[in-house]
């Protein structure tokens, strides 16, 4: 599934940073994954564990913050409840997704040379 290609992109980003800091190993990788991003967290973990072998992330722990989906009206800023129709009953505006579609590399901890 696509979680494998996401991990490959992640590894490439981590390697760029590791080269910048001349890191020996990466100890921790922190991600932010939105509930509506389309990324399945368990599959992402499995893919990470598969691909990190023999890479600079071989010993890295993976921390994932899952961001819930938050919808609001762009006009009156009212928040929508989960499962509701996505049109503001007062303003008739379509809801806007404020958060919940992130696929973000937040932070890494590296052991420098």
């Amino acid at each position: 599934m696509h979680e494998y290609s996401i991990v490959q992109a992640l590894m490439a980003q981590v390697e760029v940073e590791a080269r910048k800091y001349r890191a020996v190993t990466v100890e921790k990788v922190e991600l932010k994954i939105g509930e509506l991003s389309g990324v399945e967290v368990d599959l992402l973990r499995t893919a990470f564990e598969t691909f990190r072998e023999r890479s600079i992330c071989a010993r890295a722990s993976l921390e994932i913050e899952v961001v819930p989906a938050r919808w609001s009206c762009p006009s009156c800023k009212e928040l929508f409840q989960a499962g509701c129709r996505l049109q503001c009953p007062d303003c008739r505006q379509p809801a806007q997704l404020e958060s919940g579609d992130e696929i973000v590399l937040q932070r890494i901890e590296m052991e420098a040379a």
Partner: peptide, 18 residues
């Protein structure tokens, strides 16, 4: 223990695709 260097990235993993 050796010093750990924390680096804030805050970048989309799909930045290359985007």
């Amino acid at each position: 223990d050796p010093e750990l260097v924390p680096v804030e990235i805050q970048q989309s993993i799909l930045a290359g695709n985007d």
